[in-house]
Amino acid sequence: MLEARLEQASILKKVVDAIKDLVQDCNFDCNDSGIALQAMDNSHVALVSMMLKSDTFSPFRCDRNIALGINLNSFQKVLRCAQNEDILTLKADDSPDVVSLVFESSEQDRISEYDIKLMDIDQEHLGIPDTEYAATITMPSGEFQRICRDLSALSESVAIEAEKNAVKFVCNGDIGNGAISLRNHSSVEKPEQNVNIELSEPVALTFSLKYLVNFCKASGLSGSVKLCLSNEVPLLVEYELASNSYLRFYLAPKIGD
């Protein structure tokens, strides 16, 4: 059986809020290392990969591999019934028809119990290869969100150009053009504003802003975001969570536009 207790319901609420517009039905794969999810969007150009390691939970117990097939719209409806600071416990049997969620208020003697009906989801699960990226950019997640939102007002796509010590976000639209450059920046006083660009070779790729804006819904999960780029492989957008957990998005570059 599965029993996984989260100190704060907000983590799961934010994860589901961030991915539910990309993927609708998906399996939450539970085993003794934690809870994982991998799903492609309907158009097969973007992929979500989530890993909530067992250390994220306290306690965490999962004796067997269990796949919880959940409709994310339903999941979000139930998670909205939890306060952000509630303690959240997920429970399921070894061959479950439902997943149970218990929300406990740490301040009040309130316990809320919900069940979500599970579904059989036949999802193709392909391994994501370990990749050496040509450019890895770490920047404030709020900054990346603002850039994507601003540029999406002008254009459907953005070119991300990484070169030594600088990264440029460029768009060309019907009403005009836009470009934002960020340089390596490190501050001891405000480390949350640091920008770090690691480069083995310059790389420039174009991506759909619609997807990037969608990925940025995860900004509330982490103060910084990591962008990894290489020619001819999907962009990796990673939000690191506590205990080595993560929420990752992959997006194929546009070619020939």
């Binding site: 158009s43 392909l126 391994g127 994501i128 290869p129 001819e232 999907p234 194929a252």
Partner: peptide, 14 residues
């Protein structure tokens, strides 16, 4: 979109 799908396929299947 076809190219984008292909890039993904090659990436995931190695």
């Amino acid at each position: 979109k076809i190219f984008q799908k292909q890039i993904f396929k090659f990436f995931l299947e190695g």
